[in-house]
Computed example of a mutant assay.
Amino acid sequence: MAHTPVNHPARPIYRAIGGLTGLYLVVFGVLGLIATVGDELWAQGDTTVLGQGTNLGFSLLSVLLGGAVLAGTAIGRNVDVLINQGLGYVGIVLSLAGLAFLRTEANIFNLSIATVLVLMVTGLVLLMVGMYGKIGTDAEQEAWQKARLVL
């Protein structure tokens, strides 16, 4: 995409932010697994971790998503860009779906409003990190510079 920055000067900072976001998801998931051990997979109760509602299923999903973000950050080479953008969109969709089903029986992840907000912010952060972390050749960077200067 011509409008996505290539070789952004703050790329290492964005990559670190992506790694910290993945680490947060893993820590939240592991704490959720500890808190929900022995519960049903899609239990709807009052289990909270770090002030957010969760259950065993959502804790497993958080560990998987966080692990994917951390793996992408470790690999680099634009793999992290694809993973961060993809999971950023997934986080936004999950948070909007969670908000829609918050007080219904369809709330299979036992989300609370705090969980929805954190998931939305996490998705937006991953999207931002994915959009500014792209690396490329000097020709690609020059093409991006020319495309952004066209009015």
Rank of each mutant, 00 (worst) to 15 (best):
122 T>Q: 07
55 N>D: 12
142 E>K: 10
129 V>W: 03
90 V>Y: 05
56 L>C: 00
69 V>R: 09
119 L>G: 14
46 D>E: 15
143 A>C: 03
117 L>F: 09
67 G>R: 04
2 A>P: 06
45 G>V: 01
61 L>F: 04
112 S>E: 08
6 V>E: 09
79 V>S: 07
48 T>P: 09
20 L>N: 06
109 F>Q: 11
122 T>Y: 00
123 G>I: 10
11 R>Y: 00
129 V>P: 12
114 A>H: 09
150 V>W: 01
88 G>L: 00
113 I>C: 01
10 A>F: 01
4 T>Q: 10
4 T>S: 11
132 Y>L: 08
112 S>G: 13
80 D>E: 14
23 L>D: 10
41 L>V: 05
33 L>N: 07
30 V>S: 06
72 G>I: 02
8 H>M: 05
11 R>W: 00
105 E>W: 03
132 Y>Q: 10
67 G>A: 07
33 L>C: 06
52 Q>I: 05
32 G>E: 09
31 L>K: 03
67 G>Q: 06
84 N>P: 02
120 M>R: 08
105 E>C: 05
77 R>T: 14
74 A>M: 05
91 G>H: 08
81 V>K: 03
26 V>T: 12
114 A>V: 07
145 Q>P: 06
2 A>V: 03
74 A>R: 06
23 L>P: 12
37 V>N: 13
62 S>L: 02
50 L>P: 04
81 V>Y: 01
85 Q>L: 15
131 M>Y: 06
135 I>R: 05
61 L>A: 15
74 A>C: 04
33 L>M: 11
30 V>W: 01
123 G>Y: 06
116 V>C: 14
136 G>N: 05
81 V>C: 10
94 L>R: 03
29 G>D: 09
95 S>D: 08
104 T>G: 11
127 L>K: 07
128 M>P: 02
73 T>N: 14
79 V>E: 02
69 V>T: 15
43 A>P: 08
87 L>R: 06
99 L>Y: 06
12 P>Y: 00
103 R>Y: 14
129 V>D: 11
66 G>N: 15
32 G>M: 11
29 G>P: 07
5 P>W: 00
85 Q>A: 14
